[in-house]
Amino acid sequence: MIEAEGLTKIYGNGVVGIEDVTFRVERGQIVGFLGPNGAGKTTTMRILTGYLPPTRGSARIAGYDTVLQSLEARRHIGYLPETVPLYPEMSVRAYLGFMAEIRGVPNRKEAVARAMALTGLEDRADVLIGKLSKGYRQRVGLAQAILHNPDVLILDEPTIGLDPRQVREVRDLIRELGKTHTILLSTHILAEVQQVCDRVLIIHRGRIRADMTLGEALRSRRPDRIFLRVEGADREVPSALGSLPGVQRVERLEAGVFEVQVAADAGDDPRPAIAEAVTRRGWRLMELRPVGLTLEDLFLQVTSED
């Protein structure tokens, strides 16, 4: 559904926005698109939605080239930008009707009613957009994105400005839409990606640095912390284990419970050496496990690399 092949964008001032960006998203996948500010997310999304031509490479939406077949490609895209362009003097119903008309949506009344029902706007249908809260304006933006039932949804910070209940509702909606649509979701809320997405793309300095399922992402790198629970010793554990190869620091969390920080340049996994050191001293080893790698850990590791 979404195909990016070697996308490169060099702006007129010589600044490289993105370079050789390549990925593919299939129908029914929800992919989180992550990266620091200025990493190239917005440039990539603008190329995919036909707002910006690439300097090199190509992008296809539902099989249509976004440059050579721009109109056909756009008919298959629903786009929610971070700042939604709305008309404050129009009511919700009138705005969605207008958007349905200019998109040539058949059965416009039914399409508008469906979009409002999905986004929880039915009780605000005749309210002027200018009088809506930020959260409800965000819902209107999402409603216009799904109005024409597109194959592909590209969502830029879809839950920004929403209260916790609305955030949950929008996430549930995205998961439901993901069963039949292809969704590329850009967000700074990493917990949102873990709750909603199947895959994660991380872009840094204009290049894709990670492209994997969430499960692969969280298993892909060695955890840098180890949880340790010991009986028969307490305050002597940090000094006993702190000098082992690969151990950077041992922190006592509570009586008999420790967190071992693994050195970044550790060659071998230090867990066997830790287990041996504990048992050799006659202490009882109750628990020894790596601290699970979080998406935040992965994001920080990837975006700190050159």
Rank of each mutant, 00 (worst) to 15 (best):
E89Y: 14
I154M: 05
V170A: 08
W283S: 03
G161T: 11
G50H: 10
M45K: 09
L80K: 14
A240E: 15
D123N: 13
V84N: 13
V127H: 14
E19K: 07
R168V: 12
P150G: 06
V278K: 03
R289G: 08
T182S: 06
V112N: 05
K134D: 09
E72A: 15
L288F: 06
K179L: 09
G14E: 11
R60A: 01
T42L: 06
R229A: 13
G120K: 08
L52T: 06
V237F: 02
E236F: 13
D163W: 00
I154F: 05
E3Q: 14
V21R: 04
A115L: 08
T43K: 01
K109T: 13
I146A: 12
R280A: 14
R252P: 08
W283Q: 02
D265I: 00
L288G: 03
A4W: 03
H188F: 08
I102P: 07
I174G: 01
E82V: 07
R165T: 12
D265R: 15
L173R: 11
L142V: 05
Y95W: 15
F258P: 10
M99V: 15
E26W: 00
D211E: 09
V16W: 04
A73F: 02
M286E: 14
A94V: 09
C197V: 11
L71N: 10
D268E: 07
R221Y: 12
F258K: 10
Q29K: 07
T187K: 03
V21H: 11
G232H: 12
V21I: 06
H148M: 06
E259C: 10
R168F: 05
G215V: 03
G40R: 07
E296K: 02
L52A: 06
T294E: 01
D224V: 00
R271T: 04
A233Y: 15
G63C: 11
R225E: 02
R56S: 02
A264P: 05
R289E: 13
M1K: 09
I10Y: 03
A143G: 11
M45V: 11
E3P: 02
R124C: 10
L155C: 11
L228A: 12
R103L: 11
A115R: 11
A275V: 02
R75C: 15
P272T: 03
P158K: 13
Q248M: 05
T119V: 08
H148V: 01
V262L: 13
M116W: 12
G28L: 04
L201H: 05
V127P: 13
L173V: 10
V127T: 14
V257D: 03
L177A: 11
Q138Y: 08
V278S: 07
V237P: 04
A233Q: 14
L184K: 01
P223D: 00
G215M: 03
R46Y: 04
L253I: 13
E254N: 05
A255T: 10
Q138E: 03
T159I: 12
V260W: 10
A217S: 15
L295D: 08
R56A: 12
R235D: 15
L218H: 13
G120N: 06
V262I: 15
T279M: 09
G242K: 00
Y51A: 15
V247R: 03
A217W: 08
P223G: 14
T187F: 04
R205A: 06
S58T: 13
